[in-house]
Design a protein around this nucleic acid. Structure first.
Lengths: 250, 250
DNA sequence: CACAAGCAGAAAATCGATTTTCGATGACAA
DNA sequence: TTGTCATCGAAAATCGATTTTCTGCTTGTG
């Protein structure tokens, strides 16, 4: 029966994915459930890199990861290849993989490019977005506001919760931009900066809420220039704070 | 001895790479020689997709490709994963890979995003570029001019030669932009449009040379607005022609 | 001492056998 | 007829054994 068969498939996948230590069944970035071991490994590694659990520059031993996740070498290799494509890890033929390094220079580049590209996307979104888009922004903003900013030393879950809402708010702003490619690039850069954001988390008090409010207000007023300016300032300030913090790697 | 050992390595790699039918030792995009089978397969597939030898939408059977290149399944899988990251192929868990489809909508998106991003990069390049940069542009322009535009029906090699120079000219324009991320995104989009360019090659006579000249002149005059305008027009016109051509896939 | 060559263990890359999933086809009941 | 469900070959995914390459250490030499 299809239902039972499908049920069985899901169950089988759960059986295959879940009992592996350190591997949790998650969702891909487009909200699809993970349907293969490789994707699960990919997601797990990605999360660990973004949260700097795997440190910038760290060598990634394929055999070690395979043992840790209880999967085969190929699964790990493929996951690493995919991460390399987003520049979260770097690959060199015959020499394996390592977590992409971080540096002030890279952060500056990411930030500048991000400001430019977010601006492009935001302009288009303001031009094209309808009432539902604005409603989405307001909802995302309210949710974000309602969630306490995680304090340094907070448990991972608390941090994750805020992080998800923050991501969602920023995505809501540009979601009406109607250009898959711009959104994709924006997403790549957002992800890149997430790692840096983590490194400098909580080093300096800051009125993030007010900044978000300014952006949201300008967008809702459809004031393109003010919105772009507010967003740019927001991103630039984040980068500044991170640079100031002089984090532990480099 | 180190030297002999190194020589031996290279020879061994050549032995391993070259006798495979349909697989040629090439260079990676950063000019490094290909040092692994996987990279060779990646490069080969990429070339075949860009030249539409592998048709948009076509299913890519892993086993078939592995047989064709005389390599293992894993090598092909990994190559395909990498291609998926650039959106030259699409992957779906448990369902394999296919060449990314083409469509008017996608072309429009690629073109719009490309115009925006090339403009960003060009502005920065004009701002930062020195004499060597200008010299590079002039050299690339002269070389491109000296090469006859390939006619429809021309041999692949002729086509490839022009294509390489064209790529090099456009890259020269923005090469001084000093932002790895912008350049990377630009490159991705250039590559994407190459496939479309191929589909509509030669459908309508056009003064490409003059367009390139206009761009080069404005850039050499450091006239930012004129340069950006000329480049945008150039890209937009290309897209228009392709759309007009109503190519055979969709 | 500085430097080349040789060697051994570690790690990456490759392979093809095995397992799992997909998808088309046909049987059967409502 | 229409919609389920079982079946079966094809294709994808996974695995771990094998081969190749790298890397650090040791030894020998000028």
């Amino acid at each position: 029966m299809t239902l039972v068969a499908a049920g069985y498939s899901r169950a089988a996948m759960a059986v295959r994915l879940s009992p592996r230590p350190g591997l949790t069944i998650g969702l891909t970035r487009d909200g699809q459930p993970v349907r293969s071991l490789t994707s699960a490994v990919f997601a797990q590694l990605r999360a660990e890199i973004l949260s700097c659990h795997l440190k910038p520059g760290e060598k990634l031993l394929i055999a070690g990861l395979a043992r840790r996740f209880a999967v085969s070498l190929s699964a790990v290799r493929e996951a690493l290849s995919r991460l390399a494509a987003e520049d979260l890890v770097q690959a060199e033929d015959q020499r394996g993989f390592r977590v992409s390094p971080v540096s002030i220079g890279r952060l500056r580049d990411i930030t500048k490019a991000r400001i430019d590209i977010e601006a492009l996307a935001l302009r288009r979104a303001i031009e094209l977005g309808g009432a539902d888009w604005l409603a989405g922004i307001r909802a995302a903003y309210r949710e974000l506001e309602a969630t306490p900013l995680p304090q340094p030393g907070d448990a991972g879950a608390r941090f994750e919760a805020w992080r998800t809402l923050h991501r969602r708010f920023h995505f809501a702003l540009v979601s009406a931009c109607a250009s898959p490619w711009l959104l994709r690039f924006r997403d790549t850069l957002y992800e890149q900066s997430e790692r840096y954001r983590f490194l400098a988390h909580g080093v300096r008090p800051r009125a993030v809420g007010a900044e978000h409010a300014t952006i949201a207000r300008a967008v809702c007023d459809r004031d393109v220039d003010a919105a772009v300016r507010a967003l740019s300032d927001h991103l630039a300030l984040t980068a500044e704070i991170i640079v100031e913090s002089r984090w532990g790697f480099e």
